[in-house]
Design a protein around this nucleic acid. Structure first.
Lengths: 291, 291
DNA sequence: CCTTTTATACTCCTTATGAGTACATTGAAG
DNA sequence: CTTCAATGTACTCATAAGGAGTATAAAAGG
């Protein structure tokens, strides 16, 4: 086979949020991400993947974007060099998990695989284990010390929820992921691909209204907040969250009220995709000169 | 050949800034981006590409990141379906253009290909041509009207320099790119790949210190500003640019002064990569609750 | 000496954001 | 029926960041 030919497949990180847990679609009892060979019948990868996902989950994919193409040699140590496997990863958001599609997919909380990424409540016991083991691995090297502090928010540094992949890679490098003690493993490099997806999504919710792809038609402020909290793994300040959302004019009242919950009923809102154009919220951080 | 095998190649958007112009490395007289077959000898795509670029340009690549994987069917209409070409695109930044490497690469300003993206000074004549032709294409459809206004900053909307790819795709859809009148064409879909690279870089300079990969060892504030202006295609407000930069503590004085220019000599600065950890500047836009 | 060009330091005002307080409604426990 | 827990909603206050413009300093060149 001439150089330049390789086995190509698609692999999907499909996310939904149910019961305030971010869930990812898995196969093989939760140890693999859905993937399949690169089919040639569709015009684009995107449209082909979209069809495939809808047949699997029974739900339309609200949002789909290319994540990353994984092709390093060490992902598949046994494969011959000229048949290196290329996986084109996609991140997809679906509105809710389905009962059962063709492949009977199972949805698992992504914190099963990355328990240390959930900082909504008390840190899990794993966190101290991790930092202790990282400490002994670094054995006083100031360069690694600084990196650990930065990635895990230690010694005065703030925790940054976006650094999912970098934390995973440090732990991998330190040999903490060989056993099954720290989070649930996955086949091959699927857990790294999942980490890539979480990283992308956590970054994205800050400057783009993708969260609404995960919300039902109408929802309360608190439901929206809980969804963002689930994704970011952080607790948010309620009044400030409200202020930020309605300052952006992304949602509007439906006129209905929530019911069935304890506490005072809340107004229901819906997303206003009409405003979608103005979405590129952040816009500029450059000090532009407007004359 | 079984399904799942495809021809894979690497393609690079290599950027340098010289004489206040953002330049991209090209082959074949400026009509193609450098690309090559997927070689299997390196551990990762990244390291293989890095070596290749250094041999081509004679300069080390300061920064290299994966851009996007292009695989749509219509990029190569003549190819049989089962031999679809997959191109893995990378964005690389080099410090200056070299005299001549092995492949005698030529550097062209990226505004040759996208003249409408340069808004540093008076808009080029092309801009009015474009909006007129888009207008007649949209022929009053309010949906397209709104999209044109948003993408090109018309009718009260602000120009957003990040929407390079979206503008290119709208123009493509409207059939404005068939001839050679609007910017210089490139082979195949290379111009779209370049648009993807520019889009990524323009977004990136806002929240990450990648600009410094394009700067010489020491530089003045104005040189830095001119580089950012070249990349973003915008004029910046000088005092505010200064304030923003030194507020971030990314650079420090070398102690030297600039010379040889007209006007008052300026202090020279250097980048402080020591602070690189704290780079993730933007950090949070979520109203986190810190207890 | 005066003009041009670049460098650098401020001021002013508005908006965004972190943090906390106060009060309103509901259902459930006692 | 009262109280409380849980949720919803409206504020205030202080600080930081950002847009816009002004003022002064230091060089080169006529």
């Amino acid at each position: 086979m001439p150089a330049g030919f390789a086995k190509a497949e698609l692999i999907a990180v499909l996310v939904a949020v149910t019961d305030n847990e971010p869930r990812v679609m898995t196969l093989r009892g939760g140890e693999a991400l859905p993937s399949g060979p690169f089919e040639s019948k569709h015009r684009s990868l995107q449209s082909g993947l979209r069809d495939w996902i809808e047949s699997q989950t029974g739900h339309p994919v609200g949002y789909l974007e290319q994540l990353y193409t994984f092709a390093d040699k060490d992902r598949d140590p046994d494969a011959p060099a000229d048949k290196r496997r290329i996986s084109i990863g996609y991140l997809g958001l679906v509105r809710e998990q389905s009962a059962a599609g063709a492949g009977r997919p199972a949805w698992h909380s992504w914190y099963e695989y990355f328990p240390w990424e959930d900082r909504r409540d008390a840190y899990s016991a794993e966190v101290t284990t991790i930092t202790e083991r990282l400490d002994s691995w670094a054995s006083g090297d100031p360069h690694y010390r600084q990196r650990i502090d930065f990635l895990f928010g230690l010694n005065g540094k703030a925790w940054n929820e976006d650094l999912v992949l970098q934390r995973y890679e440090l732990m991998y490098e330190a040999g903490l992921l060989d056993g099954a003690e720290l989070g649930r493993p996955m086949a091959g490099d699927h857990r790294r691909i999942l980490a890539t997806g979480i990283t992308r999504l956590r970054a994205k919710i800050k400057y783009s209204p993708v969260v609404f792809e995960l919300m039902p038609e109408s929802f309360t402020f608190l439901q929206l907040q809980r969804t963002v909290e689930a994704l970011s793994g952080l607790r948010l300040h309620k009044p400030n969250f409200r202020r930020q959302i309605d300052h952006q004019e992304l949602i509007e009242e439906t006129g209905e009220m929530s019911s069935g919950t304890s506490g005072r009923p809340a107004k229901l809102f819906r997303y206003r995709p009409a405003i979608l154009e103005a979405q590129t919220l952040s816009g500029t951080r450059l000090p532009v000169s407007r004359h």
